[in-house]
Structures are given as structure tokens and as C-alpha cells.
Amino acid sequence: MLKMGPIIETQNLSKTYGHFGALHGLNIAVPEGSVFALMGASGAGKTTAIKILLNLLSATKGRAQVCGVESHAITPEVLAQIGYVSENQTLPPRLRVHDFFEYLRPCYARWDRTLEDELREQLRLPPERKIGELSHGMRLKMALACALPFRPRLLVLDEPLSGLDALARDEIIDGFLQQAGKTTILVSSHELDEVERFATHVAFLHEGRLLFQGSVAALAEHARPLLVAAGRHGDERASLRAIFVALVRAARQRAA
């Protein structure tokens, strides 16, 4: 169930690294309560956009608001409402799993110890293992388990399925699906087929530029002429992958 107003809104957001433009005037609005999939090929600018939203990077131009606050002025109070999971997230490697949970608990006023125990059991996290000794998949599960017990208003997931085996993907996606509706989820991924299972809204990024944003229903409407032009006439339920490919081809043709 969608609530009123966007929880994330960007205006003309741009980021350059030297001469390389990673983002070009991004305008997106993430409705509160949605599962918003930020999609695109590797290097499209998804991670850059997310890092700007969380004030991990500063924008070169434009502005972004998260939970009603400018992202560059994000406060600990706002961060206490945001859960974040990233494939590159560096958790303290010397801490044991249970020590890290102990370290996090006092940081969040709304930490739910029961939910924490459920998540740890569900994701089968070994309490005595050092985080540095965990596999990539286990570390992602660990990050997810740390992002949920305080019942975040916004859950930001940056390529959460990257490099995971099928079993781990299913476990993680099950975790997302349980949260869908309870919280707003912003998920970036290039795994189009997997994201299709739970996204309510999508935004396609290509080479730092926004190709489309809107609900999944609006996307189908928007993509129909492109699919027809691509010879997919009569494909009532085209996949995100097919739509994305059609959008990118159309963008390339326009650029040419």
C-alpha cells in the first residue's frame, strides 16, 4: 500500500569523476511504501546515485532529499530510519557476528531484539565467527540482518544479489518480500529477472541518464510502442529485460 509523497526525491542530480560523468541530471521520486528498483547495466550510475542519497559521496550538481532532509545534511536521526545493504559494504572484519550485533543495538532506539533473533536464525548466521571469515554471501546476509531489526522506514539495497548462488538469492529475496509493504525499499540491481519478482516501481538508468521511471504498470504502457517496433508485437507480459533492452536501443538510436 503506497503512502503519500516521495520518501526520496532527486533534482538534476549529477556526479563527475574528473572528466567522466557518472550521473547526468537524474530526476527520480521514490513513493513511500513502494519497492523501487533502480535498474541498469554495470556502470550505469546506480551505486553512485545511492551513495549520494546516503551522503557517502557528494553530488557535483543538483540536489537530493531523503526522508525530507537534504542528503548532504543527513543527520544521525535520519540514518536511524534507514537500513542499508551493499555488495561492497565493509563490515568490521575483526568483530565476531554477535559482537557486531551488540555494538549496533544501542545505536538504534527502535531495535527489536526478537526480530534480530529471528533474522539471525532464519539467515543461519554463526554467532562466534569473525565477520572477516564469512563468505561474500554470508556477509550480505549479515548486512541484511543488521539492516532490519530497527524496522527502518527506508531500506536501501545496492546490488544485494550480486555474486550470490541461487540458494542465497532466494533467501535474500524472501527477506525482501517479507519487508515489502512494511517499509519503502530502494533496490539497485542489474539482475533484471530477479528484481521483477518484487518491484512495484522501476527506474532504468543507462550511462548515467534516466531512461524511464514509474510504476511497473506504467512501464508496460510506456514500452508497448518500443516493443512493437522491436518486433515483439502482441507480447502482453514482456519481461523487464526485454523492455530494458528496447529502451536502451531506442536511446542509442536517438543519440546516433
Binding site: L54, L56, P76, L79, S86, Q89, Y108
Partner: peptide
């Protein structure tokens, strides 16, 4: 260096720490 400042991947950066 337990919580390095440069970079954008450290966990502490997205925690509500003053």
C-alpha cells in the same frame, strides 16, 4: 583506522553515530 574516514563503503558511515 578501525573506522577509516576516506572511502564510501565503511559500515560506520551509514550508522546513526554522532
Amino acid at each position: 583506522l578501525q573506522d577509516p574516514v576516506p572511502g564510501a563503503d565503511q559500515d560506520w558511515l551509514i550508522r546513526p553515530l554522532k
